[in-house]
Design a protein around this nucleic acid. Structure first.
Lengths: 170, 170
DNA sequence: AGATCTATCTATAAACG
DNA sequence: TCGTTTATAGATAGATC
């Protein structure tokens, strides 16, 4: 049995797989919504239009949904957009965090490299410039892998920025 | 460090914990929504009214949100409510599934018990009625624990049915 | 189309800076 | 109020029936 892979944020090409995923994730999403509402005493709602037929999934039930929508509609424009999310802003925030991680990792790397040099000097054994450079090089390999990992993730995020299938194609 | 506990579906009493949970779960929910939209090419939206201030979190951005809301509004009533979820229906479905599991478990239990009897008979050692009953009793203890477990979960679900803090208190 | 199973990935509670 | 960490609970991809 092939084990599940890390999910890539892009359209699932195979339609039957997509349907299965849709069903599972829709259920999961509504469960999460109910949890949020109950645990934190939150008024929230969701509307999900099926891509496979004309069904609509809504939560909570229409009357209370109306209530929320009304309050949303009656909000001043500035209030409405105060905490607006879309694919772009959300992805931008994620990239921002990845970059921040990279920055911190770089600083950490520098610190480790410096520690290595200091240790090498302090130990005083077989100390010569070329040897030290080689040592640093080896240390660096591992550290660079970390950076590469992060860079790959950043590039992946960049590539994902705006998938051809925008959520609001209609 | 105390490790995280299994989350109970009820209002988090401590306000600061509730705020932290709200922030985390809101982020998680929107992430899930973006995933669903992207992976399955779904039009979906969510509106979250903060219980702590007047902020509103919406996804996607208002223009596309309007699009979805308009389409929802223009749906015939029957279509709108076709796949309606609320705390009650969702919980009912979960209870239904638990009951189904219980039923299957009972059947499985019966099968195991019967197997036990058959084995006992076939082996033909120390077979007497009272002994067999005792044996079954012992087997049953474990099996009943399973049933109890399920019953507890059902009762928990029943108790959760409509927490005092309805999602739509306002 | 939906139910079930399991390995794996993801979300997040709790604790702390 | 946030960011980070870590252990654990929870979600779900992929396979199968």
């Amino acid at each position: 049995m092939t084990r599940r892979t890390k999910v890539q944020l892009q359209l699932i090409p195979n339609e039957s797989e997509r349907k299965v995923s849709f069903r599972k994730r829709k259920t999961g999403l509504i469960k999460k919504l109910i949890e949020l509402s109950t645990l934190c005493d939150v008024d929230a709602c969701a509307i999900i239009l099926s891509p496979f037929n004309s069904n609509i999934d809504v939560w909570p039930s229409p009357p209370t949904l109306q209530n929320i929508l009304t309050r949303f509609r009656d909000m001043p424009e500035t209030e409405q957009t105060k905490h607006m999310y879309n694919q772009e802003t959300f992805t931008r925030e994620r990239i921002q965090k990845e970059r921040e991680q990279l920055r911190k990792l770089s600083i950490e790397n520098q610190r480790i490299e410096i520690d290595q040099i200091i240790n090498q000097c302090m130990s005083g054994t077989n100390f010569d410039f070329q040897n030290n450079l080689n040592l640093l090089n080896n240390v660096d390999v591992v550290l660079r892998q970390n950076i590469q990992e992060i860079n790959i993730r950043i590039n992946t995020l960049k590539g994902e920025n705006f998938p051809q299938n925008t959520p609001m194609g209609g």
